[in-house]
């Protein structure tokens, strides 16, 4: 990395450097785009995989034990080890990072979907049966909409975690902003490390706010009792799922 530009804060290697942001705007944009691409792809695939798994787990008790147990074990594997274990499967590629993130997101998503599906009131189901709804229609018209709040909560947590875990992908060269953090560490480039880290946190917060807005828009009925926000700490996903491994 050549810090050839004779600008003051770049040569002084300061933590905060506007000159860095303006001169490397393109590099930063590319890294951010890669970061978003990896995160969005991983969460999207995870949602598509988690739904059938959650349905299977709901159908058969033994499947529930197996699926939840396996995803929990996967969640325990540290990120660096996960990417390392996937290396021989995909070679050095973006798929390593995406696949790792999908596996982590599955734990959160399957649990939350299952909870959401189980929280559908029995009366709603019976009413649908009475109206002559079949299995498929019941799922898509009754159960999934009612399970949406839990599902969206899961997607939010999975997305925020994925944004942060993507950085570790730098080990295979596909870490989005993590690449900048990693190379900045080797060249002792403080502005690059701090800027990339700050962007990463901003991305996570932005994604969370955006998803929360979507959640509010598609589940207007949950806003009915707006004042009951000071409830107990929601237990499902906050408690024993480690934050960013």
């Amino acid at each position: 990395m050549s810090a050839a530009t004779a600008e003051s804060c770049l040569t002084a290697n300061e933590w905060i450097c506007g000159e860095y942001v303006s001169s490397r705007a393109e590099e930063l944009t590319d890294a951010t785009v890669e970061h978003v691409l990896i995160t969005v792809t991983a969460v999207a695939i995870a949602v598509l995989v988690a739904l059938p798994l959650a349905l299977l787990a709901r159908r058969w008790r033994f499947a529930a034990g197996g699926i939840l147990g396996l995803t929990t074990v996967l969640y325990t594997v540290p990120t660096l080890a996960m990417y390392a274990l996937l290396l021989p499967v995909f070679g050095i590629s973006m798929s390593v990072v995406i696949c790792g993130l999908v596996l982590y997101s599955l734990t959160i998503l399957v649990r939350n979907m299952l909870t959401g599906l189980q929280s559908v009131p029995e009366e709603a189901r019976e009413a649908a049966v009475g109206l002559g709804y079949g299995r498929g229609r019941m799922l898509f018209a009754i159960e999934l909409p009612l399970a949406l709040p839990a599902l969206m909560a899961g997607i939010r947590i999975a997305t925020v975690s994925a944004v942060s875990l993507t950085t570790v992908g730098a080990i295979v060269g596909y870490g989005g902003l993590g690449n900048l953090i990693y190379s900045g560490m080797h060249s002792y480039f403080k502005a690059q490390v701090l800027t990339a880290s700050a962007l990463c946190v901003a991305l996570a917060v932005l994604a969370d706010v955006a998803l929360l807005t979507v959640q509010r828009l598609i589940t207007p009925w949950t806003r009915a009792g707006g004042a009951k926000r000071r409830g107990p700490v929601p237990r499902d996903s906050v408690l024993d799922v480690p934050g960013t491994v």
Partner: peptide
């Protein structure tokens, strides 16, 4: 804690 990347810290 979830939003802050461990690696960055």
């Amino acid at each position: 804690g979830r939003a802050i990347p461990t690696f960055a810290v």
